[in-house]
Design a protein around this nucleic acid. Sequence first.
RNA 1: GCUGGCGUAGCUCAGUUGGUAGAGCAGCUGAUUUGUAAUCAGCCGGUCGGCGGUUCAAGUCCGUUCGCCAGCUCCA
Length: 642
Amino acid sequence: MENIKITFPDGSVKEFECGITSYSIAESISKKLAQFAVAAKVNGNVVDLNRPINENSEVAILKFDDEGGREVYWHSSAHLMAHAVQELFPEAKFGVGPAIETGFYYDIDIKTQLTDEHLVKIEKKMLELAQENKPFCRKELTKEEAVKFFTEKSDEYKLELLADVIEPDAQISLYEEGDFTDLCRGPHLPSAGLIKAVKLTNVSGSYWRGDEKNKQLQRIYGVTFPKKKQLDEHLHLIEEAKKRDHRKLGKELDLFSLQEDSGAGLVYWHPKGSRIRNEVETFWREAHFQNGYDILYTPHIGKSKLWETSGHLSHYKDGMFAPMQIDEQDYYAKPMNCPFHINVYKSQLRSYRDLPLRWAELGTVYRFEKSGVLHGLLRVRGFTQDDAHIFCTHEQIEDEIVEVLRFSLYIWKSFGFEDLKFYVSTKPEKAVGEDHLWEKATDSLVNALNREGLKYEIDEGGGAFYGPKIDIKIKDALKREWQMSTIQFDFNLPERFEMEYVGDDGQTHRPFMVHRALLGSLERFFGVLIEHFGGAFPVWLAPVQVAVIPVSQQGHMDYAEEVLKQLKKAGIRAEVDKRNEKIGYKIRDWEVHKVPYMVIVGDKEVEANGVSVRQHKKGDQGSFGIEEFISKIKDEIHNKTI
RNA sequence: GCUGGCGUAGCUCAGUUGGUAGAGCAGCUGAUUUGUAAUCAGCCGGUCGGCGGUUCAAGUCCGUUCGCCAGCUCCA
């Protein structure tokens, strides 16, 4: 019999006999550890604490905060919630109830429309059940036995899930906690008593198995913790995150608006927001020229013939605004820029010597998004993509992808984003384009990511019908992931538009076409940018970089105007606060509006021919000469200091 | 689009069982002339999202429509 090596959270390793459960191990080390242990990790797999360990295994005891611990804890909480719902609504039927990044949910089928009051009752019942501290017991059955069990309960949802299990001799596991039994792979907590604090956050509709043709169940979202204090901290963090919400800051800082009379999802950029956009666009253009791109401007609308050729009218019509008729022709607002870039390509005969061609455009597109999906700046109906198309030969493709990745990282880094997630989406079932092209393209994406040492996840079959892609996602203030950059192959449009180039062999060839957007859309990017900085933009982006505040209106206004003149001459965006208020009031106001620098000018400054500098959030920075201050701030702008 | 919730002054929000609206901030005017996060006083400001209905009477009840919020589905 071999021994088992156990790693503990503190890093120490001890040996135990085979056949022991990880719970007993935890207990034999310390009662306290056992009290907080939620699961065990055996050879990399998270399992129940009470299952015997029989091999020479690497075992680690998991607590709530360890990697994988929360998932077990929240998944068990989902069961406990379902149990509570079953107690209060015996007729309830249950869909699925997994742990998610910020807690858990359970899909429930009941007639009663649940309200906040119901949630409070369910919370109470959960805490009652938790106090009973019943163990979670695993039962293993054959598929036949499991089907029998759920048939007796006439539980159609679990039966449907069981029907998906193909292998006839598959082992099915159930978990029992008190009077609640659920079909589940586990693992679970040793007992419900570990759940001490509960908050059910909201109810919403959700389609059974994620298909909008199916029945809509009620999904209850919640979060639980081993300590009340952790729950309070969690709720506090959510409140703080809401303060960064770009919709709230957009209004408070007068950056943008969406107005009912012009239509949902159509953005008004106000002067301050436009100022920031202008800085972003200028930076973007310069960076593109430096990285070997040319910039195009193309029309906003096109005749139906164009969209028939591109296939948009047969595949994407629901996503387009209805056409307008001019001279008995239908014109559509463009949902994408690609056909226009292709038309530029086709305006002359292309040689392999011309490739690669890299054409970028800040292209404004209109898409008829479903009303329920619109969300501030992050999901709109009219937006400007920082689009580009790369046309190249088969030999060039991998290097081109590497260049796009590097460029993309440079752009995101310039705005202070380091936490990006990469996803590779491969060929779906329905697809156009030859297999060897898909293979070549997918390889070039994966190789490029590997060459750059970037971690990625593969979304098998998640590509568009016209080609594989890399998506880059980042999170908003409320931890929702948004797709920003995308690098997509397109095997469809080059075919449809019959794009060609003449190779060195004198024959015609079809180029590779890569569609890419780095910021995604300026609207979505701006939304995420606002949340990223919490509205306190770095100096190079700030709409007002310096507020000049005279101590008194009568004595110091001339000097303030003189300072303003010098700042403006240096290209700095500055304003004089002429209001008849005490400086405490004015400082507070500029602080609230998150202006990076304030300069206060009074008798002392007039005499010394200087300024007194105050930095946002950091307070008084002391006295500077005017020239000295200007050169400091110009450095920051030039270096794009964040 | 679907499920649920919501829409009152520029903003944030009160408004009892139906009896034709209120606060703070912002704005304007005046006083004050200020030294690092809110000076004082007065004034202005609302077809209660739109339309239709029930009622003697609708911000409040019903229908419809537009928009917003959470989530689902979809997506840059």
